[in-house]
Simulated assay, not measured.
Amino acid sequence: MGSSSSKSKPVAPVPISTTVTVHTTVQTSTAALPDSEGESLFDNPDISYFALAFISGILSTLLVVAVVCLIRKRYKRSQENLQEQIPSKTQREESAENIQNEVFYASVVIKPQPKAAPV
């Protein structure tokens, strides 16, 4: 149907050139590796962090207890100083207050009346 000029010519793939460069570095150490016999329990960083957290918890608890004790001691001293500054009352005033503040209890006994004899 068509002439030879209208037919497509096959295209051959052109090879793609790629270049990959790999650099490697190897470091060697002359220090000997530690033996399992010489390892310490605290060489593991996780155990060290737990030990540090435990010790800091104990120390912070002691600090809080010390602060609370000092505050209570200061409060008691201030209360004692206030009581010393207030003049004490005489014995008559104190005894009069005690009598006014007393509560008296009365006891009542109810005796049943004897039943009357029928007539």
Rank of each mutant, 00 (worst) to 15 (best):
M1F: 14
K7R: 14
K7V: 01
P10G: 04
P10D: 07
P10N: 06
V14H: 03
P15N: 00
V20F: 05
T21E: 10
V22Y: 02
H23T: 08
H23F: 01
T24I: 03
V26G: 01
S29G: 01
L33K: 00
L33D: 08
D35I: 01
S36D: 06
S36H: 01
E37K: 00
S40N: 00
L41Y: 10
F42R: 01
D43K: 04
N44F: 00
P45A: 02
D46Y: 09
I47A: 04
Y49V: 12
A51I: 07
F54E: 02
T61H: 14
T61W: 12
L62W: 13
L62C: 14
L63K: 09
V64Y: 06
V64A: 13
V67P: 05
V68C: 10
V68H: 13
L70N: 15
L70M: 14
R72P: 03
R74T: 07
R74N: 07
Y75L: 04
Y75R: 15
S78Y: 04
S78C: 03
N81M: 08
Q83T: 12
E84N: 06
E84H: 14
K89I: 09
T90V: 09
T90F: 06
Q91D: 03
E97T: 12
I99K: 09
V103K: 10
F104S: 13
A106F: 15
S107A: 13
V108F: 15
I110G: 06
K111G: 07
P112G: 07
P112W: 10
P118K: 11
V119F: 08
